[in-house]
């Protein structure tokens, strides 16, 4: 069954608040993890499958958030229309930026995406007239879905989880289609992909745009959920956190990104009490995972389990991909 993992995940997400009613931890941290999952799954399409690094992805998260914030507070747009505008803006920005930037490789691409992220952040801080500057924008109205105003932690949990499941489902579909195979081909061998008729520039651009759309989507929801946005939520550190989530779970695995996002969210919550140690642990974790388990925790562990399973059954273990 192609989507068995997805249905199990969806069931778990739906059951959690029922198992732990009125639990602040489940609904609030859960919603926060859900947003991170959308971001990580989107970035994984670009990093894990297409093999292109982005160290500026928080910028697209910010574009979605600020589009919703500005359009609803200053212009009184309905929230869904503002969300759509945010998606459009992020998509166009990514599309325009993708062509020149995705010709670059490795360190050059890292630098270019990083520079893009820094510039976007500077604009959020400096364009005070629009963004409210460093103080941010407050008073963002609740999300209004066809007359239903989303209010309260439990409702937000529901909305964000639905959005997250949609993102995971879209990602799973995409990866397991010819579009997804073309993307993975670009990562595997750009030469061969071209020779199979894959327009590699177009494939990379698509991955970049789609991952920007995921990020902007999460950004819009984030703005409404928090009712407040400020540049701090979209700086370089956030971009690095997103990369951490993807590699922590394991590149090129949608559920790897899901696990990475959930794990990092929980870790951050767990370290809230030891706030000063958060950086130390975050840094050590990044290094340790990349050195000892570069395929990521989720992917590494599932491979180990599979190997163990086949060893117990007595059949030949599949070689690691």
């Amino acid at each position: 069954m192609r989507l068995a993992g997805f249905y199990a995940f969806a069931a778990a997400v739906a059951l959690l608040p029922a198992l732990f009613p009125d639990n602040y931890f489940v609904v609030v941290i859960g919603a926060s993890a859900g947003l991170n999952v959308i971001l990580a799954v989107g970035l994984n399409l670009l990093m894990g499958y297409a093999g292109q690094i982005s160290l500026g992805h928080a910028a697209f998260f910010g574009v979605g958030a600020y589009a919703s914030a500005i359009l609803t507070t200053r212009f009184g747009w309905p929230s869904l229309l503002a969300l759509a505008a945010g998606l459009l803006a992020a998509g166009l920005l990514a599309w325009g930026f993708a062509r020149p930037i995705l010709r670059l490789r490795g360190h050059y691409l890292a630098m270019a995406t990083l520079g893009f992220g820094v510039i976007a952040h500077v604009v959020m801080v400096q364009a005070t007239h629009w963004t409210g500057g460093p103080d941010g924008l407050a008073g963002i109205p609740p999300l209004n879905v066809l007359g239903w105003r989303v209010e309260g932690d439990l409702q937000w949990y529901g909305v964000i989880m639905a959005a997250m499941l949609l993102a995971v489902w879209l990602s799973l579909n995409l990866v397991d289609s010819q579009v997804g195979r073309a993307l993975r081909a670009v990562h595997g061998s750009e030469f061969a992909a071209q020779m199979m008729g894959v327009d590699t520039a177009r494939a990379k651009t698509q991955a970049f745009v789609v991952s920007a759309l995921f990020a902007a989507f999460a950004g819009s929801l984030f703005a409404h959920q928090q009712a407040f946005v400020s540049p701090d939520s979209f700086n370089l550190a956030v971009s690095v956190e997103l990369v951490t989530m993807v590699v922590l779970g394991g590149l090129a695995s949608t559920f790897g990104a899901v696990c990475g996002a959930i794990a990092l969210t929980l870790l951050q919550q767990g370290l809230v009490v030891f706030e000063d140690y958060e950086m130390l642990v975050h840094g050590a974790l990044l290094m340790a995972v990349m050195i000892f388990m570069p395929q990521g925790l989720f992917v590494g562990l599932t491979q180990a389990v599979r190997r163990l399973g086949s060893a117990l059954v007595g059949s030949k273990p599949p070689a690691a991909a």
């Binding site: 990093m47 093999g51 690094i53 160290l55 490789r105 490795g106 360190h107 890292a110 690095v240 990369v243 951490t244 590699v247 590149l251 000063d276 140690y277 958060e278 950086m279 130390l280 642990v281 975050h282 840094g283 050590a284 974790l285 990044l286 290094m287 340790a288 990349m290 050195i291 000892f292 570069p294």
Partner: peptide
């Protein structure tokens, strides 16, 4: 050294991790 031969993305992330780690030490 332990990650010799790793991909560009891997080494970038390792050194980013190191940077965050050193920042964390300085913070403490």
């Amino acid at each position: 050294e332990p990650a010799a031969g790793a991909s560009v993305v891997t080494t970038i992330i390792i050194t980013i991790g190191a940077a965050i780690f050193l920042r964390g030490v300085a913070l403490l």
